[in-house]
C-alpha cells in the first residue's frame, strides 16, 4: 500500500522485534525516516543498514534498555531532533516470560509486568505527548498487545494481565483523542500466534500461525486507518469472541 503523504518519521521502541523489523521494512520502501531503539548496538546497526538499503530516508539508533523510563522524554526529544519531527511511534518490545516461574517467583512476575505494562505506560504517555506536540492529526501511536489479554488462561495469565493493561491503556487514549480536534490516532494490535524468536520454543504449524510480515502488512494498513483495536490476523476477533463468551464451566476444562 502506498500513501500519499510525506514519508513518515518513525520512532520504534523495540526495533529488534521480528514484527517491528518487518513493519519497518515496509515503511522504508516508502522512504520513511527512523530512530531505532533496542538493547543491542550491533543488531541495531545491522537493522539500520538493511533499512537504508531498502530505501529509508535516514536511520539513527539509540541503544537503551526500555525499562529505563526516566529517559522517555529525552528519547522523544532526540527522535524529533534526529528526524526533524516525529509522527509515528511503534511500541513493539515485550517478553513472554515464564508463567510457571512467575507463580512461585515474584521477581519473574514483576519482570513480565514491568516490561509489558508498567514501562509501557511511561513510553505510551511520553509518545502521546510528543505526537500531540509535533504531529497533531497526522500522528499515530501503535502498540503490540496480545489476544492473551482478552481472557486469562492458565498457560500465560501473568503476561496476559500485563497485555490486558496495555490494551485498556490504549483504548483509553484512543477515547481521549477521539474527543479532541487535531489529535493523533491510537492503534492497539491484538496479536495472535506469530512465528518469531519469542515463540521459537513452541512447536508450530497449522493455519493459526502468522509470519512477521503478515503482521507488518496489517500494521502498515492500521497506520493509515482503522483501530483502535485491531486483531492481527483478523480471524482472532472471532476466536477471542468465542473464547470470551465460553462459560466458565466449559472453559475450565480446556487446556489453553
Amino acid at each position: 500500500m502506498t500513501e500519499t503523504r510525506s514519508p513518515r518519521k518513525v520512532l520504534i521502541l523495540g526495533a529488534l522485534s521480528a514484527m517491528a523489523a518487518a513493519t519497518a521494512r515496509r515503511l522504508a520502501a516508502q522512504g520513511a525516516e527512523f530512530v531505532l531503539t533496542g538493547r543491542k548496538a550491533d543488531a541495531l546497526e545491522r537493522e539500520a543498514n538493511d533499512l537504508k538499503a531498502r530505501g529509508a530516508g535516514s536511520v539513527s539508533i539509540q541503544v537503551i534498555d526500555l525499562l529505563e523510563t526516566s529517559r522517555c522524554d529525552a528519547v522523544m526529544d532526540l527522535a524529533v531532533e534526529a528526524m526533524g519531527g516525529l509522527d509515528t511511534v511503534l511500541v513493539f518490545y515485550g517478553i513472554l516470560g515464564d508463567q510457571a516461574q512467575a507463580e512461585t517467583d515474584p521477581q519473574e512476575a514483576e519482570r513480565i509486568i514491568a516490561v509489558n505494562y508498567s514501562s509501557a505506560v511511561h513510553w505510551v504517555m511520553a509518545a502521546a505527548r510528543a505526537l500531540e506536540a509535533h504531529a497533531g492529526s497526522s500522528g499515530v501511536l501503535l502498540t503490540a498487545s496480545s489476544v492473551a489479554g482478552d481472557r486469562g488462561r492458565r498457560s500465560n495469565f501473568v503476561y496476559g494481565s500485563a497485555k490486558a493493561g496495555l490494551s485498556v491503556l490504549m483504548q483509553g487514549l484512543a477515547h481521549k483523542w477521539a474527543a479532541q480536534d487535531n489529535a493523533p490516532r491510537a492503534v492497539n494490535l491484538k496479536l495472535g500466534f506469530v512465528d518469531t524468536p519469542m515463540t521459537d520454543g513452541i512447536e508450530k504449524g497449522g493455519p493459526l500461525w502468522a509470519k512477521p510480515d503478515d503482521i507488518a502488512a496489517i500494521a502498515e494498513r492500521a497506520l493509515v486507518k482503522g483501530g483502535p483495536n485491531v486483531y492481527a490476523p483478523w480471524f482472532w476477533r472471532f476466536i477471542m469472541l468465542a473464547i470470551r463468551v465460553t462459560p466458565f464451566f466449559v472453559f475450565n476444562k480446556v487446556n489453553l
Binding site: A18, R46, E47, N49, D50, A53, R54, P197
Partner: peptide
C-alpha cells in the same frame, strides 16, 4: 530464514551485498 538483511545496495553501480 533470519539472515535476511541487506548490508549495502549501491543503486548507481548495481552492486548488492546481502
Amino acid at each position: 530464514a533470519r539472515l535476511d538483511h541487506y548490508i549495502e545496495f549501491d543503486p548507481d553501480a548495481g552492486v548488492l551485498r546481502a
